[in-house]
């Protein structure tokens, strides 16, 4: 009797003394196992396409003379939103160039474009699948929670172990972190399409696919564009973190500046990131409002 009481007292006081969950060791072992067995797989099948797209984008963007580039950005901003946005974009990116970090800017932009490319490539179909299957949605939702809330520092090291250092692991980490809003908002946008439109499409004999592409997708486009906008913003927020594992660009300026206690260099990099973020935000928002499905919002 006395022994039982003693046991209960100990259990209430310090229950953790009784069980030792060897999580650290288990995860370390698991990661080591994955690295040992799948490293080659990742390096032969995952790295090359990511690196290829990155190099392609960077090659294309850096081939444009900076003056032309600025003019192009001005035109794009004007077309997507207004001449104000065009002018703002021109001045912002021009400022970054005058501060002497044009090349890092182009690298960062290439990183963002590449990451967003893969986020859309996988996020859009996954979002569509989520919108069509409640079960798939229920399965994917916790995965998205994990992708969004796990601190990126946690998976930086495994990423390096799998992909070695450089732009690729940074891109992979960025893609993991930035894809969820694309999936979530695609799903949300399609689910939000009013059932009366679906009913009308069904009544005229549309197939599921026709309903998706002729009705749901265009009407969801403003919401999907908001997802794209979020994805771009999140990828930009990752460029400094990615720099820790060897990605270049403005993030590297910040990181290097911090390491050498060169405050000016760090700030110039930071300002560049902010200005690029604002330019991309205004332009994609403009695109979202231009989407044909945005019309019903004004009704």
């Amino acid at each position: 009797m006395g022994e039982l009481l003693e046991f209960l007292r100990a259990l209430l006081n310090d229950p953790f003394d009784f069980v030792d969950l060897p999580a650290r060791q288990a995860i370390t072992d698991a990661v080591n196992w994955v690295v040992a067995n799948f490293r080659d797989f990742f390096r032969t099948y995952v790295s090359p396409p990511v690196r290829g797209v990155m190099n392609g984008v960077h090659g294309a963007l850096s081939a444009i003379p900076p003056g032309m580039f600025l003019l192009g950005v001005f035109a794009l901003g004007w077309w997507a939103a207004s001449w104000r946005v065009g002018l703002f974009s021109l001045i912002s990116l021009g400022l970054v160039g005058f501060m002497g970090v044009w090349d890092p800017l182009i690298i960062t932009l290439s990183l963002v474009v590449t990451a967003v490319f893969f986020c859309v490539l996988f996020g859009l179909p996954l979002g569509i699948l989520c919108s069509r299957s409640d079960r798939f949605n229920a399965i994917l939702r916790p995965v998205l929670d994990i992708m969004q809330t796990t601190p990126p520092f946690v998976y930086l090291v495994p990423a390096v172990m799998l992909f070695s250092i450089g732009n690729v692991p940074g891109l992979i980490a960025t893609i993991v972190f930035a894809m969820p809003p694309m999936i979530r908002l695609t799903n949300l946008g399609i689910r939000q399409v009013q059932s009366e439109f679906i009913e009308a499409a069904v009544a005229f004999g549309s197939t599921h696919r026709q309903i998706l592409w002729k009705i749901q997708f265009p009407l969801a486009l403003p919401t999907i564009m908001a997802g794209l906008n979020q994805t771009i913003m999140l990828s930009l927020s990752m460029v400094v973190i990615a720099a820790i594992i060897g990605a270049g660009g403005l993030g590297l300026e910040v990181y290097a500046g911090l390491e050498r206690l060169n405050i000016g260099q760090a700030f110039v990099g930071g300002i560049g990131i902010v200005l690029l973020a604002m330019v991309l935000d205004r332009i994609t928002q403009g695109l979202g409002e231009k989407a044909p499905g945005a019309r019903h919002k004004s009704e």
Binding site: E196, A200, A203, F204, S206, K214, L219, P292, R295, E299
Partner: peptide, 30 residues
Amino acid sequence: RMLRKQHMSMVFQHFALFPHRTVLSNATYG
């Protein structure tokens, strides 16, 4: 689907016109 496409069409109380399509492209949806 064939029946709905060829032989029966429908008009709705709240119109259910597709807002992202022009009037002409709404009219020709079927």
